[in-house]
C-alpha cells in the first residue's frame, strides 16, 4: 500500500474542488424526473430509479471529464515527476490515482444518491432499502469503471489534445451517447433488417436477434442499466427503466421488444442480467490493463 498517500492526496484534491460538488448538484437535478409511468411501474422505488436517470448520460460525462486529465496534465506540467521520483512503482502511481479518484468522485455521487433518497423518502414514502443499497453499490462500481477507463486514456496519451479528442470522439460519443444507434446500424448492415422500416409490403417489424441484445449490453453504460433494471425488477433490457415499463405495460404494436424475455423464446445464458457485472468488471480491468502495459514500459516522461 505504498500508494496510499498518493491516493489520499488525489482524494483530497477532488473533494476540495468545487466542480466536484457542482457535479453532485447536476446529478440530483438530472436524476429527479418524476414520471407517472415510472411510478406506476415501480411505485415508491421510483426514488431508486432516479439514480439510474442521472447515471445514463450525465454520470459518465462528468466522471470522464473530471478524470481524463489526471495523468496527462501532470505529465505536461511536470508534477508527475514528484510521485515518480518517490519510492512508488509506475503501477503504484496508476493504482493511487484510480483509488483516490474513485473514492473522491464516489463520495460526490453518493451524496447525490442520498439527497435523492432523502427527498424520495418524504415524497413517495419508504422504498426498498435493499434495492437502494444494491443500486448505489452498482453505481459506485460504475464510477470505478469510468475512472479506470479515463485513467487509462490519460496514461497512454502524450498530448492533452489527444486525450481530449480520445475521450470524447473515441469514447464518450460512440460508447455512451450513440452506442444504440451504432449497434442498430451494424445490425442492419449485417442482417439487412432496418428498424421498423416502411417497405413495399408494409412496415417491417424490427425483430432483433440474440447478438443484437448482446452487442447492446457490452457498452459499460448499458451493462449498468441492465443491472439496475434487474434490481428494480422491471425487465431484462438495456434501456432506461421507463422505456422498459412502457413496453411491458402498454405493449405497443410498433416494433419488436427490447426486453429479452418478450423478444426471445429461449434466451441464452449470456443475456442474463448478472453478466452485466462481468461486463463492468472487464471494462474496469481491460483498458487500464492495456494502458498499464504501455505505461510500465519504456519512458514515462
Amino acid at each position: 500500500m505504498r500508494w496510499f498517500p498518493l491516493a489520499r492526496k488525489e482524494f483530497r484534491g477532488i473533494v476540495r474542488y468545487k466542480g466536484t460538488w457542482l457535479f453532485t448538484l447536476l446529478l440530483v437535478y438530472f436524476g429527479y424526473q418524476p414520471s407517472y409511468v415510472g411510478y406506476q411501474g415501480v411505485g415508491s422505488d421510483i426514488t431508486i430509479a432516479y439514480i439510474q436517470n442521472f447515471a445514463t448520460l450525465l454520470l459518465p460525462l462528468g466522471v470522464l471529464l473530471l478524470s481524463y486529465r489526471s495523468i496527462i496534465k501532470e505529465r505536461r506540467s511536470g508534477s508527475l515527476k514528484i510521485p515518480l521520483g518517490l519510492p512508488l512503482t509506475r503501477t503504484d502511481v496508476l493504482l493511487g490515482k484510480i483509488a483516490g479518484r474513485t473514492v473522491g468522485l464516489g463520495a460526490s455521487v453518493l451524496v447525490a444518491c442520498l439527497a435523492l433518497g432523502g427527498y424520495g423518502l418524504v415524497r413517495y414514502g419508504l422504498f426498498s432499502p435493499l434495492r437502494f443499497v444494491a443500486v448505489v453499490l452498482t453505481t459506485l462500481l460504475y464510477v470505478l469503471v469510468l475512472v479506470s477507463i479515463a485513467t487509462a486514456i490519460s496514461a497512454v496519451t502524450r498530448r492533452a489534445i489527444t486525450a481530449t479528442v480520445g475521450v470524447f470522439a473515441g469514447l464518450y460519443l460512440p460508447l455512451f451517447a450513440f452506442w444504440r444507434s451504432i449497434v442498430h446500424w451494424v445490425n442492419g448492415m449485417v442482417t439487412g433488417a432496418g428498424a421498423n422500416t416502411a417497405t413495399g409490403g408494409g412496415v417491417q417489424t424490427f425483430a432483433p436477434g440474440e447478438s443484437y441484445f448482446l452487442l447492446l449490453r457490452l457498452a459499460p453504460g448499458n451493462a449498468y442499466t441492465v443491472l439496475t433494471n434487474w434490481t428494480l425488477g422491471v425487465g431484462n433490457a438495456a434501456r432506461g427503466y421507463i422505456g422498459v415499463i412502457q413496453q411491458t405495460q402498454f405493449a405497443s404494436g410498433m416494433g419488436g421488444s427490447t426486453i429479452v424475455e418478450t423478444a426471445l423464446q429461449d434466451p441464452p445464458v449470456y443475456l442474463h442480467e448478472a453478466i452485466g457485472l462481468l461486463v463492468l468488471a472487464l471494462w474496469a480491468v481491460v483498458p487500464i490493463g492495456l494502458a498499464w502495459l504501455r505505461f510500465t514500459r519504456g519512458d514515462v516522461l
Binding site: K9, G85, L86
Partner: peptide, 30 residues
C-alpha cells in the same frame, strides 16, 4: 528511490497543496 532525494528539473509543484502538505506527502510515501 526510497534511498534517493531528488530535485527534478522542469517539474511543477501541486498548485493547491500547501508546503506542509507537499512534505507530508513525501514523508508518508517514503
Amino acid at each position: 528511490r526510497a534511498k534517493i532525494g531528488n530535485l527534478p528539473d522542469q517539474y511543477s509543484t501541486y498548485n493547491k497543496l500547501s508546503a506542509r502538505r507537499h512534505l507530508q506527502f513525501v514523508i508518508d510515501t517514503k
